[in-house]
Amino acid sequence: METLVIQTLNGLVFSMLLFVMAAGLSLIFGQMDVINLAHGSFYLLGGYIGFTMIRQYENYWLALIIAPVIVGTIGFIIEYAILRRIYGRHHHLNQVLFTFGLALVAADLIRWNWGSYVITVAAPPQLQGQVPFLGIQFPVYRLAVITFGLTIGAILWIGIERTRIGMILRAGVSDAKLLSGFGVNIQLVFSGVFAMGTALAALAGVIGAPIHSLYPGLDFEILILTLAVVVVGGLGTLKGAFLGSLLIGMADTFGKTFLPEFALFLIFAVMASVLILRPSGLWGLRGQR
């Protein structure tokens, strides 16, 4: 029973991390039809920048703000300078290949700069230690991550459903061309969305660092699980990202506990069954675009 509670909570923690990742990936895809294969690299980059900030200024909260800003700016520049030049050519394959090249370069540069050993990051002092929760002792930091993930989800939901910017974003998902016909600067929207998506990845990187540590290779581990989330949940919707994250986060956590050798195989099984039932994901935008 105790393991069950602990693992359910751990599953929730991981689900929330995946959700922040998947939300960014999904946001970018919804607007621009681009699958950003460098998304995991932005996670890792965010984590490492956060780690450097924490070491330098001994302030986790500063890192939590600065790392996403830096990575988001990098994302903005990449979209503004390069990615927008290859829209529409070759059915978007070139864009994906571009982000893949980016992931290769990023992985190499990150290893070159921060080394290839595992870096552990301490939780902020305010959130260290454990508290009794549902009859067990559970780390405060992990409970905070769950709350944090839910908060981000709520902010994103309100932002997309209830604000003017959200209205533009929703219109962009339906028809970006028409939207630009109405006088909206769609190029700026694209740059902004890409920056936002990469910043979310970096945010997940800073939040995840005290839990998963930082090491080369983590970028693609996270990317694969995020891809699994959007395959299961569907692309382009916040709901899909959220429920997909819960499914994959739980499957991964419980898989690792009970079938350590086959944890990913369990995810594979979940993905396969969703593919057989609904090839475009359980809660994704209808149809292929």
Binding site: F29, D33, I35, L37, H91, H92, V96, I224, L227, A228, V230, V231, L235, F268, M271, L275, P279, S280, Q288
Partner: peptide, 10 residues
Amino acid sequence: GVFFLMITLA
């Protein structure tokens, strides 16, 4: 399309 790409990678 992109789903094929993601799934083969995964």
